[in-house]
Amino acid sequence: MYQTKVTEIGAIVPDFKEELLMVLFGPSAMQELRDICVIHESEQEPKEVLMLGGKITFGDQEYTITKVGGEANANFESLGHISIYFREGENEVLPGAIIASPQVFPDITEGDAITFQ
């Protein structure tokens, strides 16, 4: 299990609700990316936490990982960066992304925990 805490929600993040897309980034995110990202921080090191069938919880909202891009774990481990699509695409999942179900954008606030199991 890996847990991280939402420390900042970019001003443009709500605009991605319609696209069912959330971009997570660790505290080292460049300033020009912060408006589109949910910034999170943890004292734990994420190691291969993104796996097919794994669970992600935003507060009390639980999602199941249905697809994992080939670079998703490496990006998450090094930068805390992952794109989460809450919808199925017609194409392959992008290398640095995952797809999670159900197809509902989570409600999050600063201070919320995000848990990967």
Rank of each mutant, 00 (worst) to 15 (best):
M1K: 11
M1Y: 09
M1Q: 12
Y2V: 10
Q3E: 15
K5Y: 02
K5R: 14
K5G: 05
K5L: 07
V6R: 01
T7C: 06
E8R: 13
A11M: 07
D15R: 09
E18S: 14
E18G: 13
E19M: 15
L21D: 06
V23Y: 00
V23I: 15
V23S: 06
V23K: 03
L24G: 00
F25C: 06
F25Y: 14
P27W: 02
P27M: 05
S28C: 08
A29L: 03
M30D: 15
Q31D: 15
Q31Y: 13
Q31P: 02
E32A: 13
R34K: 15
R34N: 05
R34A: 08
D35Y: 01
C37V: 03
V38N: 01
I39L: 15
H40T: 10
E41P: 03
S42Q: 10
E43A: 10
E43V: 09
P46F: 02
E48D: 15
E48V: 01
L50C: 03
M51P: 00
L52Q: 14
L52A: 12
G53D: 09
G53M: 06
K55D: 09
K55G: 04
T57R: 12
F58T: 08
F58P: 03
E62Y: 00
E62I: 15
Y63W: 02
T66L: 02
T66K: 01
T66R: 02
T66G: 03
K67R: 15
G69R: 05
A72R: 03
N73L: 04
E77N: 08
S78C: 08
G80A: 04
H81A: 08
I82M: 07
I84W: 04
I84N: 07
I84H: 09
Y85Q: 05
Y85F: 14
Y85E: 02
R87T: 14
G89T: 14
V93E: 06
L94P: 02
L94A: 15
G96A: 11
I98G: 06
I99Y: 03
A100C: 03
S101T: 14
S101L: 12
V104A: 07
V104K: 13
F105T: 03
P106I: 04
D107P: 00
D107Q: 13
T109G: 06
E110F: 02
G111S: 09
A113N: 12
T115S: 13
Q117R: 07
